[in-house]
Every structure is written in C-alpha cells, then in structure tokens.
Design a protein around this nucleic acid. Structure first.
Lengths: 202, 202
DNA sequence: ATGACTTATGGCACACTATGACAGAAAGGT
DNA sequence: ACCTTTCTGTCATAGTGTGCCATAAGTCAT
C-alpha cells in the first residue's frame, strides 16, 4: 500500500473519530460539517470527498453490514431455507464485528451511543438501505423460485430478518462491552428464529 | 368551522395536490419547494408553515397511520396478546383508508407511485416514525408486564408488526384500484399472522 | 360598520448541507 | 528532474429550513 492510500485511510479515520467525539459531546444535529472539518484541519469541501454526507459518518457501519449480508446470502447453499440463510448472513455480520480491531470496537460503541440518542438516524439507515433490501428480496425470491414483483412472502422474509437484526443492534442495554453486546445480539437472533413457525419460509 | 380554518385546509390540500403532481411529472428530487409554492401562489416561507419539510409532504400519510395505530393499540383489551392487538391496529389503518373520500384515494394512489419510484422515502418514514415505534414498544412492554428497556421480545413484536404493514403497503403490484390494494394488504397481514408460532408473543 | 384583537402571510436575512468548476499542491512513476 | 495522476482548497451556487418583523386578513366585540 502506497503512502497516498495510507494517508487517505488515516484522514478517513481521523474525520470519523473527530466526528464521533463531537457528536457525543454536543449532539449530532448541533455539530456542523465545518466543525468536523476544522477539528481535523481540512476544508469542508474535502470532508465531502471522504464522506458523501454527514449521515454517511454514522451509516457507514450499516452499509458495510448490508453489503456483507448480500455476499453471505449469495454464498449460502441454494437449498437452505431462505430465512435460515438470512440468519446466517446476520451471524456473519456479527462475526465480522467480533473479529475487528479494538479501535473498531471503540468506534462501534461510540456509534451505538450516538444512535441511541438520535433514533431517527436508525431510520435513515433504512432509507439508505432500501436498495439493499430490494436486492435481498430478489435473492430470496430466486431461491424460492417465485417472482419478486408479485410474491409478498419473499419481501416479508427479508423484512423480518432485517427487523431481527435492527432490534438486536439497538439491543436494550446501551452500556456494556463488546462481547456482552454481541452475545445479546445472538440472543435476539435466536429469539426471532424461535418465534417463527417451522417451515414458514419455504 | 370558521372561514379561516376552511381556507387553511383548502390551502393545505392545494399544496399537497400540486406537489404530488409535480413529483410525478418531474421526480421528487428535481422538484423544489419554490416550484411547489409557485404552483399554488404562496411564498416558500408559507409552505414551511403548512409542511415542516419537503419530506413531510409524502410522509404525512404514514404519520397519520402511526398515530392511529397508537390510539388503537391503547384501546384494545389489555389481556389480548400484543401482536394480535397490533394487527388490529394495522387493520384499523386499513379501514380508515377504505372509509376516506375519493379525493383521498386519489392522493393515496399518487403517493404510492411516488414512493415506488423513490424507495429511500419509505425509509425516511421509518426515520420519522422512530418515536412512534418506541411508544408502541412501551405499550407492548406494559401489556406484557416487562421493562421496555431490557425486554427484546417487546421490540421484536413491534418490529414484526411494522414490517408486515410496510410490506403490505409497498405491496407488489403498483397499479390497481383502491379495493385491490387494500385487499392485497389484508392478505399480507394474514400471511404475517400465519408465519408466526402461536403464542410467540405472550 | 368600526375598531380592537388574533392569526396568517410575505419578505428578508441567515445557517447549514451539498455539488460543480478550476487552480494549485502532493505523490507516483520514469 | 520530469510528467502524470490524484488530492486538496477556494469560490460560486443551489436547495432546505428557521427566526424575525411588518403587514394583511379573519374574528369578534360593540
């Protein structure tokens, strides 16, 4: 990796960390892009070259997770029931979180506190992820051999899976360390699986 | 109702209709508040007194529906299982739609086409409705006699119910008349009810 | 009707997010 | 050193959204 790319990544993380801290200090809404840019000594214009919007700062995580879910779903055996496959995809996101560095964990914990204080941001992630959900529904419909445009169950399967993931993510109990949180998210996933009638997603 | 209030309601609907038509003609993003205000001959400043934001134009419907859900959930017998009560609340929203005027139906159909072309707006409604979902979760937790801050199932029940409603709302098959659509939404609700294990929400 | 009171409106200034265009700085390869 | 590619800052601009104040319109007395 060249100096250029290393510097870029460093700047990206500097922006992210400065922003997360400012959001925690003075709130998401009352923090301006100008302040964030000032804190890392770049111009506001440059900020928008690293993050397409202010939202993007807190949504990069969901974006990454959703992408990972699509990839995992694609790689699961085609004869696996769709909801089961989706739950594996959710678990893949969890594993990815557990395997990341300590710095990433800290960012994640900060992020959770910010999302906790700004619930509308969680919805924003749904807004951003509309395309991803559509793609997941297409993959599920393909597995079930139905047309994604007319089959409601395919959409419902994806919607339930994403609900489980979101509830797990918000998971009550805002404080706590990383293993506590992932453990709790696993519980939520299992709870969702237990709640559904066996074979409902065939 | 005085002249003042009647005039206000008339202006409100004029703005709404002009906006929906402009959105359909030239897209949501490329329509500006200035254009909408111009079409109904009011100042942009006045527009923001009728609708708090541009989003609000397409989200007023969800807002109304969610408020109705909260009210309905409150009025259902306390010993009814929470998910059943929530499904009654969803049906209440459907009935409310069916009972509204022909003009309202037309607005709803236009709105659906706009949301269909701008999926991110559906997510926006989730963002806006974050507070409502929280309130619903509190009501469900109260029914179940648990603490909303620590009980995951209460959140999952609400999330599943809202998922069912959203899937029904987007319901594949974008064309179609009002009774076709509400019929299809009813199907979705029943599908969701069948998918869950009896007694899962106790 | 006239006047007093309340509320709606328009115009103005302003803050913030976001994007396009262009020039100059930094990094890479030769 | 040279040239190319990429990144950065500055400037200009569009669009959303809000506070403030003067004015216009609706409301309600007498």
């Amino acid at each position: 990796m060249g100096l250029r790319e290393r510097k870029k990544e460093k700047t990206r993380l500097a922006i992210l960390d400065a922003a997360l801290d400012l959001f925690l200090e003075q709130g998401y809404e009352s923090t301006t892009v100008e302040q964030i840019a000032g804190a890392v000594e770049i111009s506001p214009r440059t900020f928008f070259r690293y993050f397409t919007s202010k939202d993007h700062l807190v949504l990069w995580f969901h974006e990454h997770g959703e992408q990972l879910m699509v990839e995992t779903l694609r790689s699961r055996p085609q004869d696996e029931p769709p909801f089961t496959a989706l739950m594996h995809a959710v678990r893949a996101v969890l594993s990815d979180m557990e395997d990341s560095t300590e710095d990433e964990h800290q960012r994640f914990l900060k992020l959770r506190r910010i999302l906790d204080e700004n619930p509308q941001l969680i919805g924003q992630s749904v807004a951003r992820g509309a395309g991803t959900e559509r793609r997941l529904a297409e993959l599920v419909a393909a597995r079930r051999g139905v047309d994604v445009d007319t089959d409601q169950l395919s959409h419902l399967i994806v919607a339930f899976a994403m609900s489980a993931m979101r509830v797990g993510f918000e998971c009550p109990r805002r404080d706590g360390s990383m293993p506590e949180i992932t453990g709790r998210m696993t519980e939520t996933i299992e709870l969702a699986e237990r709640s559904l009638r066996p074979g409902w997603d065939l």
